[in-house]
Amino acid sequence: MYSQGLIGADGSTNETEEFLAAFQARIDAEEKIEPNDPMPAGYRRTLVRQIGQHAHSEIVGMLPEGNWNTRAPSLKRKAALLAKVQDEGGHGLYLYSAAETLGVSREQMTEELISGKAKYSSIFNYPTLNWADMGAVGWLVDGAAIMNQIALCRCSYGPYARAMIRVCAEESFHQRQGYEIMLTMCNGTKAQKDMAQDALNRLWWPALMMFGPHDGDSAHSEQSMKWKIKRFSNDALRNKFINATVPQAEFLGLTIPDPDLNWDDTLNNGAGGYVHGPIDWDEFWRVVNGDGVMNRERLAARKRAHDDGAWVREAALAHAEKRAARMAAE
């Protein structure tokens, strides 16, 4: 569960015009680029950065929901939540694998994450404070991510596109289980419905921020679009998400926490669409740059898991070596 927005990798590249034109011709012909194919350095760098951020988002994204693994209020919810958080781990794994085809190791990417150098979706730096957050995360955060991820299934880089196809197939239950939690709580006691509204109030704006800065302020976006690493603009996906989500909130009987939200008949070639109020981009950049409520704890948790696991990984390698030696001696 990730959405574009942080990409920001420098796509600049210094290959010859001829090389770049030949590469662009392959992209324009919708040919997929595979690991050993010649590619501009900027293309490789952009992908490594984007796939890495995407993978990190999945892995860090395990934490806010994992925060409720031991507190799920029914055995059915307990199973669904654990399966979902486990899926996020699997998605991180698929994505690290896709990035590894570009010559960067999982070990390197992990180092970049835990050192704070790499970015990940800012949404995971917000805390999950009540059970309805499990509903809202599935409904809004996975909902936002899916808009982006479906588009990425057609990304020009083969391994990334294939990983996304797998991710999208698995994620189809995530948003639904989230919405079902919201629905159950909105049909429940007043306290439950209050929790649901509270979760929506806290997560709505961060969910919109997941799509990244407005198109005009989105650095390097144009090159990514041209290379078909990114297939829709930030604003286009954000608007699509809002148009899909507002009626779902109405069905729940919840209020979108945006007093400026209004319908404009003229949008989308006369089909109409919502116009949202101003997004607090200062908050977005503050959280991206490390000063969200949970940034430090998220990184500390990942670092602890990595450091505490070192002796296990070393033991497995040591045993593998001994076993290989024994087998060779036989």
Binding site: L63, Q86, G92, A305, G309, R313
Partner: peptide
Amino acid sequence: CGHGPMLE
């Protein structure tokens, strides 16, 4: 969950 020694 989320804290294992390696993703696998």
